[in-house]
Simulated scan of single mutants.
Amino acid sequence: MLQVALYEPEIPPNTGNIMRLCANTGCPLHLIKPLGFTLEDKQLRRAGLDYREFADVRVHESLEALIAALNNPRIWALSTRGTQNHTEAKFQEGDVLLFGPETRGLPVAVIKELGVDKCLRVPMLPESRSLNLSNATALVLYEGLRQQGFPGMA
């Protein structure tokens, strides 16, 4: 199964929508601190509806803690700075899709640490700044699941 990780997420409704996405796909959701909200935030609960109880949500103190907890997984960074389209990646079981905070994206240092070759982008018009975080997550996650034949999904 693919895994979704949000690096320092800021906007509760986006995380709630992604929580719902992960609940419906069976993919774990990893939240990397600091969070811009609490897990009890009313907007988070509203966006996630009653899916919180069905989502596998794990909170990590840092990116390093996530990497250690998952035993050094392959991580794909998603950024407008990406060098290849998300459809060009060959996703594998256990891969982590890492998305940055809504207002600033993944830090350049994180992208460099993971490797520029592991930095993907979602195609859009050149003058566009970015997509909504939950929309981008859905696009990339479903491409990865499509490549794997939608495991366990009907």
Rank of each mutant, 00 (worst) to 15 (best):
L2I: 11
G48M: 03
T15V: 09
G48L: 01
L6M: 03
L141T: 09
R45L: 05
A138M: 10
Q92H: 11
A154H: 11
A47C: 07
P123G: 07
M1I: 08
P73R: 02
A154E: 15
P34L: 01
N71Y: 01
A136W: 01
P28T: 02
P126K: 12
R121W: 04
R104I: 04
L125H: 14
R45E: 09
G26F: 00
E40D: 15
G149H: 07
Q148V: 03
E88F: 14
E113M: 14
L49M: 14
T15C: 10
L98W: 01
L120P: 03
A77G: 03
H30P: 09
T38S: 15
L29H: 12
E8G: 12
F150M: 05
L70D: 01
S130T: 07
P13C: 10
R46V: 01
R129Y: 11
V59L: 15
R20H: 07
P126R: 12
G26W: 01
L6Y: 00
L63R: 00
L125M: 14
L106D: 00
R81E: 14
T103Y: 10
S79A: 10
M153E: 12
G149P: 07
L141C: 10
L133S: 10
E64L: 09
V116K: 11
H30M: 05
R58I: 08
R58N: 13
R146I: 03
L125N: 15
V59Q: 15
L98E: 01
V122K: 02
T87Y: 09
W76S: 07
D117Q: 10
L141I: 05
P101H: 07
M153V: 15
A55W: 00
V140F: 05
V116Q: 14
V140T: 13
